Amino acid sequence: MDSSTVAFATVPTRLGDVLAAVTEDGVAATHFQDGPLVRERIADRLGMAVADDRVRTAAAGEELAAYFRGELKEFRVPVDWRLMSLLQRQVLGTLSATVPYGEVVTYGELAARSGTGVPARAIGSIMGANPIPIIVPCHRVVASNGLGGFSGGEGVESKRWLLTLEGHLPPTLDWDI
Rank of each mutant, 00 (worst) to 15 (best):
F68E: 05
R113P: 00
A7D: 01
L86R: 15
E103H: 12
T94A: 11
V55Q: 12
R76A: 14
A111T: 01
F32G: 01
E24N: 11
R89P: 04
T164F: 13
T10S: 12
Y101H: 15
E154R: 13
A9R: 03
G152D: 07
S4H: 12
Y107A: 01
M84S: 06
D25A: 14
I132R: 02
V77N: 06
A97I: 10
G117E: 09
L147M: 13
G117H: 07
V99K: 15
Q88C: 14
V11L: 07
E63W: 09
R140V: 05
G149H: 00
G115T: 08
R113C: 04
A129K: 10
V156Q: 10
I135Y: 02
R69A: 13
L86A: 15
A9V: 10
E154Y: 05
L147G: 09
L37R: 14
A7Y: 03
H168D: 00
N145V: 03
L19C: 07
L92W: 03
E71F: 07
L165M: 05
F75E: 07
L15D: 11
W175A: 07
L86G: 15
W81G: 11
T98N: 15
E24M: 05
E62T: 10
G153T: 05
I42K: 08
C138S: 14
G115E: 11
G47F: 08
S3M: 06
E154K: 10
F150H: 06
A60L: 08
F8M: 10
V136A: 01
P171H: 13
P131F: 01
G146A: 03
Y67C: 02
A66N: 08
L72N: 11
A60F: 05
G26Q: 08
R76I: 07
L86H: 14
G167I: 11
A65W: 01
D53R: 12
P12N: 13
D176E: 08
V118N: 06
I134D: 04
S158K: 01
G146C: 05
A66M: 06
A97S: 15
G70H: 06
E63F: 08
V91R: 10
G117P: 07
C138L: 00
L110D: 00
P78E: 14
V142N: 03
C138W: 00
L15H: 09
T5W: 12
P133K: 01
P170H: 10
S85M: 15
R69N: 11
D2A: 12
A122H: 09
S3V: 08
M127L: 13
S125P: 00
A20W: 02
G155K: 05
G152F: 02
F8D: 04
E74M: 09
W81E: 15
G167V: 08
L110P: 01
V156W: 00
V118G: 04
S151F: 01
S4P: 00
G128C: 07
P171T: 06
G149F: 00
R76F: 06
K159Q: 09
D25Q: 13
G124R: 04
G70L: 07
A7R: 01
R113T: 01
I42H: 06
N130W: 08
A65L: 03
G16A: 10
R39K: 15
